[in-house]
Design a protein around this nucleic acid. Structure first.
Lengths: 235, 235
DNA sequence: TAGTGGTCTAGACCACTCT
DNA sequence: GAGTGGTCTAGACCACTAC
């Protein structure tokens, strides 16, 4: 079907049709939908094709599937917003701005207590503590404060962060780790205010990220953005 | 197969194995991976099974697939963070706190200019303008300011928002719409400060959401959270 | 033009869970 | 017990694209 000149995968057609039926109230919220077999008959396709459409809709949170009891339209859709977390460099270059990086500070220290707790580290763990700045068209864009667990990534001691940021280095060394991320609003302290060229106590958007590699804490980073920064997405 | 006592789908095993190989550097970043056929042979399964594993890894952004050229390990993984956007009521009840709602203000007005621009509305559009509060254990949790396009949802004029919030009503009326969402940090103005029981100019976390239903703007909402609020997730 | 991933099929067996 | 979704297979054709 649908050989009308448009070539779209059949399971996408089915997804669209199902969404439309839900939006138009043909299948009400909380209501039971037809079984995969019935839908496969209606759409004249294999059950696997219907299955893929329904599986993706379930992943998006629009429907709820249970063996034996069937597929239901979710009453309160717990929708998910997806944010792409890219390198600052990419974020800036996508805005057609010139990226510039500067290392502010770099030293080996013992972690503060709150960080030891957060990363579940032993008392005398050795860490590398960094501060750096990211600029877009020479305007302050992001202030980055980072701790790296030298136990998890020994090579970091010899790494040179004068010309490129620790994030890019880490991504090359420790690919595809797990992370926990948090967004919040904070007031600029004196240091941030100076680096981000803003008055003290300005509200700033902050992103914190803790990263593990194979259950070993690797790094904690606190990225504070310039005033007015917005994080946006569709869903 | 895989009758070793563990019951996990084979495509999940394959996913894990591939992630492990990437993490251990067996397949380096940017490198070409074996074809689906070769992997199917190695894992002694159908190509469709390998396909599903690789498809999901590609969705997660770990690998990059192109017809004819093959599958590559992504060099700079644009990872995605997923946030679940639920009703305030749910968010609060999940924290085992008691939810309370209060309507502050509700009036039909013309939209301010910036909102007309944002929603692409005609000059004399009619809108419902609402302010309300959400409490957790009687502590201020979220201040909500919302505009609803009465043209898109005429029934809203007769809706009663004294006992439950407009979001719950809208979800029941306009299921599964499209939305755009933005996070930012702002300073509390006098009104917010009073409602959130905080000094003026306190940094606050704010979430703005614009919602469409079938290409028609439905509502714009600005949710401002109590001081110290953090939005968290794993990825 | 040939190789790769993208999709689809018809059928099968299994796991879960409602009754 | 029986019905539903979850997965897998072996094979097929197609679309894209590097060569």
């Amino acid at each position: 079907m649908d050989k009308t000149g448009l070539r779209q995968a059949k399971f996408l057609d089915i997804k669209q049709e199902i969404i439309a039926r839900i939006q138009n109230g043909i299948w009400a919220q909380g209501a039971l939908m037809p079984t995969e077999q019935e839908l496969a008959q209606e759409f004249a396709c294999a059950r696997a094709t219907v299955n893929r459409a329904l599986r993706e809709l379930a992943e998006q949170g629009l429907i709820n599937r249970k063996r034996k009891s069937g597929t239901r339209v979710n009453a309160t859709p717990i929708k998910q917003a997806r944010f792409e977390i890219a390198l600052v460099r990419q974020t800036i270059e996508e805005r057609n701005a010139t990226y510039r990086y500067a290392l502010v500070e770099c030293a080996q220290t013992a972690p503060p207590d709150w960080l030891r707790a957060q990363l579940d580290l032993p008392k005398h763990a050795a860490m590398l503590h960094l501060k750096c700045m990211h600029y877009a068209d020479n305007q302050p864009f992001q202030f980055e404060e980072r701790w790296i667990n030298t136990d998890a990534v020994p090579d970091v001691i010899e790494a040179d962060f004068t010309n490129s940021g620790p994030n890019e280095w880490l991504l090359a060394q420790v690919p595809f780790s797990n992370a926990e991320i948090a967004f919040s609003a904070i007031a600029a302290d004196d240091e941030m205010a100076r680096f981000l060229a803003t008055p003290a106590d300005t509200p700033l958007f902050q992103m914190e990220r803790t990263t593990w590699f194979q259950d070993k804490p690797v790094t904690f980073v606190r990225m504070t953005f310039h005033p007015g920064y917005r994080m946006q997405t569709q869903y």
